[in-house]
Amino acid sequence: METTPLPPLAWGMPDTVFDLLEGVWDLDRVIEGKATMAGTARFVRLDAGQLKYREEGRIQLPNGQAFDGHREYVFERSPKGFSVFFAEVPPRLFHDIAIVREGDELVGSAGHLCVADQYDSVYRFRADGSFVIEHLVKGPRKDYLSRTVFKRRGL
């Protein structure tokens, strides 16, 4: 008897996205014209309303130089999605993401002013179970688009 593969992760409704983030994800990032990164992201439950996010990977620059990098955030459940905090003491808000349905995707966006540089971020939770985070950064010190695709490990 032939077995059929499990269906891809379904994100459900905007209020179910937070819980479905928990686990291990493969990540693939492109920072246009500046770098790429391949690695792993982990969402680990801290308590019922918080997930610790840690990404680790290999960063490749256009000149061939490569090095390891990591980043951490804390995601906190909110009524319409989640808030993302820098992993600092005390925590500092990066942005609040309110999730809405757009076709077969769930999408949330927010802005963040970091000194004089504006970060406009979009989170897209796709029908195939993957998700994408894009940060468009504009300002006197920064000008780039970062796009990271996350695919659940093992699917």
Rank of each mutant, 00 (worst) to 15 (best):
G81S: 10
P91I: 04
P91H: 01
H70D: 12
I59P: 02
F94A: 04
A110S: 14
D68I: 10
V100S: 15
A110R: 05
G103V: 06
H95T: 05
G108Q: 04
L106N: 06
H70F: 11
E105K: 13
E88A: 13
Y73N: 08
V100G: 12
I99V: 14
F67T: 08
F94K: 08
V89Y: 10
L61C: 09
I59K: 10
L106T: 07
E76V: 09
L113T: 05
A87W: 00
P79T: 11
H70P: 00
V100C: 03
L113Y: 07
R77M: 02
Y73E: 09
V100P: 02
R92L: 09
P79R: 03
G64M: 06
H95A: 05
E88C: 02
P62N: 05
P79E: 13
F94G: 04
G81A: 12
E72M: 14
E105R: 14
I59S: 06
D68H: 13
G64V: 10
G69Y: 03
A87E: 13
F75I: 01
S78Q: 11
F85A: 01
H70T: 07
V100N: 14
F94V: 04
D96M: 03
R77E: 02
R71G: 08
V74K: 14
S78Y: 05
D68V: 07
D104W: 04
R92V: 14
D104L: 07
G81Y: 06
E76A: 14
H112R: 13
R92N: 01
A98S: 14
E72T: 15
A87R: 14
P62A: 01
G81N: 02
V115M: 15
D104K: 14
D104H: 11
V107Y: 01
G64H: 06
N63M: 05
D68P: 06
G81I: 07
L113A: 12
I59D: 07
F85I: 06
L106M: 12
F85H: 10
K80G: 05
F82E: 10
H112Q: 13
I97D: 00
P90C: 03
V74S: 03
I99W: 02
V107G: 03
A98D: 15
F85Q: 05
F75Y: 15
A116N: 11
I59W: 03
A110E: 08
L61V: 05
V84H: 01
G64P: 05
Y73S: 08
F94R: 03
E102A: 11
S78N: 06
G81V: 07
G111Y: 01
Q65H: 13
L93N: 10
S78T: 15
G69W: 01
I99A: 09
A66R: 11
F82R: 10
R101I: 02
Q60R: 15
F86D: 01
V84G: 05
C114R: 08
G108E: 03
D96T: 13
V107E: 07
I59T: 12
E72L: 00
F86G: 04
A87H: 13
D68M: 10
L93K: 12
G103P: 00
E76Q: 14
E102H: 10
S83P: 00
